[in-house]
């Protein structure tokens, strides 16, 4: 286990030397579970990760406070979810999640995924990780699983923060679904968790792309920026009617399908289609990352 993850006091740049996992005390053996545990511990103790999760949590909190302060004008501007917040605090988490999908969540995932390999390379720690009997394939898998863990944590933080602040500032009640049916508070909490899971799955394709880009370069900032740009570009392409034939192939195609979890009955096929699409991206970019990483000459 990581006895001493290096203290990381700097939030800002990824370039500060010694910020990340410099030296893992004992190279782990066995199935790589120890390596994974150490990776997760370093990832979630890193100041940058905590700051990103805190920023995500701030989104629903800002929404809730803004709506609470200016509760006068509830005319039908913006998504219907925001109008419903004043009647039911449980919508805060959902509204926050939907607002975060196009930009904030891909942004944080881009940072987490872009840093995976390039971050170690830029700190000169990649060499030591590979000297240990970890092996390149296993390191790649562990890095990917670490990003997946971040994909799970990020939307969950938004939903939980939103639900808590909504419960504090607004009355709670039964939730009206898009179909007009009403479900109990407990079921609506289950639906919110399901939406969080949907968004986690949605982000996995992007994190595979980020992992691949991260193997291409030794500059983590470049890999992060490229991943984020790709996520924005995919959504721009997705909004152009002239490229409609391409839309089903974009990893962002099903992103807003998260609202299908708010229909009665739940549109499970949407969840399944999304999962298959993301799996395709994981296979393609996982293979690309593998080929690139095992052929890469590690100089740092």
């Amino acid at each position: 286990m990581s006895d001493s993850p290096v203290s990381d006091s700097t939030l800002s740049a990824s370039t500060a030397p010694g910020e990340t996992a410099s030296v893992r005390a004992r190279p782990p053996r066995g199935l790589g579970l120890a390596l994974l545990a150490s990776e997760l511990a370093i990832l979630f103790r890193r100041t940058r990760t905590i700051a990103m999760l805190a920023a995500l949590a701030a989104v629903p909190i800002l929404i809730a406070v803004a709506v609470r302060v200016s509760s006068s004008g509830s005319s039908g501007r913006g998504p219907a979810f925001i109008d419903q917040i004043t009647q039911n605090g449980l919508f805060v988490g959902v509204a926050g999640l939907i607002l975060c999908i196009p930009l904030f969540l891909p942004l944080t995932v881009g940072v987490a995924a872009g840093d995976t390999i390039a971050g170690e390379a830029s700190h000169g720690t990649l060499r030591y990780l590979l000297v240990a009997p970890a092996g390149r394939v296993r390191l790649l898998i562990v890095k990917f699983l670490g990003t997946v863990a971040f994909c799970i944590a990020a939307p969950l933080v938004v939903v939980l923060a939103g639900t808590v602040i909504g419960a504090i500032l607004f009355p709670l009640g039964n939730v009206t679904l898009l179909s007009g049916d009403t479900v109990s508070i407990s079921e609506s909490l289950g639906r919110a968790l399901l939406m969080s899971a949907y968004v986690s799955v949605s982000l996995i394709g992007l994190s595979a792309i980020g992992l691949f880009i991260s193997t291409l370069t030794d500059t983590p900032v470049g890999a992060m920026a490229a991943t984020i740009v790709i996520s924005v570009a995919a959504q721009v392409v997705g909004s152009l009617d002239q490229l409609a034939w391409l839309h089903p192939w974009l990893f962002s195609y099903h992103w807003l399908g998260v609202v299908d979890m708010l229909r009665q009955p739940i549109l499970w096929s949407s969840f399944g289609d999304n999962a298959i699409l993301q799996l395709g991206y994981v296979i393609v970019f996982g293979a690309l990352a593998y080929s690139r990483f095992v052929t890469k000459s590690i100089l740092s």
């Binding site: 296979i283 393609v284 996982g286 293979a287 690309l288 593998y290 080929s291 095992v294 052929t295």
Partner: peptide
């Protein structure tokens, strides 16, 4: 051979 997966997977 190591680039094969990257070609085959897509």
């Amino acid at each position: 051979r190591r680039w094969l997966p990257a070609i085959v997977a897509p």
